[in-house]
Amino acid sequence: MIYERGNLFLVAQSLLVVAYSTVLTTDQTAARVIAAFGLPLTFVWLYAGHRHLRYSTAVQARTAAKLPDYAETREATRQAGVRATPVIVYALPSLASVMWVVLLAIS
Rank of each mutant, 00 (worst) to 15 (best):
Q79D: 07
V17E: 04
E4A: 15
T77L: 12
V82Y: 12
F43Y: 10
Q13G: 12
Q79L: 12
A80M: 09
A91L: 13
F37S: 08
P86N: 02
A76Y: 04
Y55V: 11
V89H: 05
A80D: 12
R51T: 09
T22R: 11
G6M: 07
A36V: 01
T22L: 14
V98D: 00
V11I: 15
L8I: 12
W100P: 09
T73M: 09
Q13A: 14
V11M: 10
L53Y: 15
R54G: 09
V98H: 01
V59D: 09
A96L: 08
I88L: 13
S94E: 00
R54N: 09
W100M: 02
E75G: 07
A35M: 00
T25P: 08
A65I: 04
L103V: 02
E72V: 11
P93W: 01
I106P: 01
L67K: 11
D27L: 02
V18E: 06
A84L: 14
R32N: 10
G38Y: 05
V59L: 13
Y47A: 13
V89S: 03
R54S: 09
S21G: 07
L15V: 10
G81F: 13
P40Y: 08
G38H: 04
F37Q: 05
S107T: 14
Q60M: 13
L15A: 12
R5K: 14
G6F: 07
T42K: 02
I88G: 02
A91T: 07
V102G: 06
R62M: 11
V82P: 07
L67F: 14
L46T: 03
Q79H: 13
I106V: 15
T22A: 13
A31Q: 02
V82M: 12
S107C: 06
Q79T: 11
A58T: 06
L95M: 09
Y20G: 03
T57R: 14
